[in-house]
Design a protein around this nucleic acid. Sequence first.
DNA 1: AAACTTTGTTAGGTAATCCTAATAATAAAC
DNA 2: GTTTATTATTAGGATTACCTAACAAAGTTT
Lengths: 170, 170
Amino acid sequence: MDVLTPGLENYLEAILRVGLEKEVVRVKDIEKLLNVKAPSIVESVKSLAERDLVEYERYGYIKLTEKGTRIAREIYRRHKMLAGFFNRIIGVDLETATQDACAIEHYLSKKTLDHLLKFVEFVESHPEREPMWLSSFHYYVKYGELPDYCRKRREEVKKGKINNGKEKNC
Amino acid sequence: MDVLTPGLENYLEAILRVGLEKEVVRVKDIEKLLNVKAPSIVESVKSLAERDLVEYERYGYIKLTEKGTRIAREIYRRHKMLAGFFNRIIGVDLETATQDACAIEHYLSKKTLDHLLKFVEFVESHPEREPMWLSSFHYYVKYGELPDYCRKRREEVKKGKINNGKEKNC
DNA sequence: AAACTTTGTTAGGTAATCCTAATAATAAAC
DNA sequence: GTTTATTATTAGGATTACCTAACAAAGTTT
């Protein structure tokens, strides 16, 4: 089950991410990516090596094993999903979204992660254009009020002119 | 600033929550609520007392100070918002939603929390009935496919019969 | 009020993550 | 091929947040 602590998950993910950009992964790369000092990294990489998730020899490169790669990809998928959710749906800037995804990605239950993933898929199932309600939400966040076409519609609903009950938030 | 560690935030919140249900708050109440052994609680309550967030004397009751109450309420608001988001919007059962809210509530940035709150408000701004797209999403999560009326509509869009570009996910 | 039960405290310990300072290995430059 | 610079490791410590076991106080029963 969940043998991996949040910290170790984070290192595993970082190793994968560095590996996507560079030929080889070294301690200093992780140092930069995670803003963590070298000794912490060495310690954690050793721990990952004990679990057969990475191969590592003193002063050498850090390489994910097959098992490590599999798990790291899983974690990274989670990360991207969460960051995308915060950024594209909730409307937070990418940097904050990424940071917050990092902060919570190791703590959510499988079930919630699954539902969130489905939510993102659902919302973005037609990626050519975002759903109307979502645009409306982004407008709401930005300007603090529902956009014009919504207000108008609401007035009408209020006056009883429209009430098909099929639309919410506009 | 964020002087409060995640753990302490959690105890503060727990004290508030117990206080909402019972006249007085004691160590054993927190013990039950958080599933944590007494010594951990005593330790943390002492720490909260040092910060003037609670009043506490050995073998006595635990009482939030004014400042403590203010902060605890803030934290609890966050908690409820997140649990509600997971439960009512993302569609996770209440127990899981609550658990996951607990797990992440101390780690999210102010910005993201703010956007999430707005999102919940936005979605539930007409609480009499949930938005159509949300019902559609819940159906999607449950049955793995878009509900009938959506599929039908999609077919029509595909055939070029409809394409007003104003609707997504149905 | 003595005995028992419940509750709270202290002391001491563990695990996960981080750190600094000192040391060692490797790589680069002269 | 020494010297220098970069990079990695070890040793030792701090913090947070838990725990168990032993003890102490408060509350309850008879």
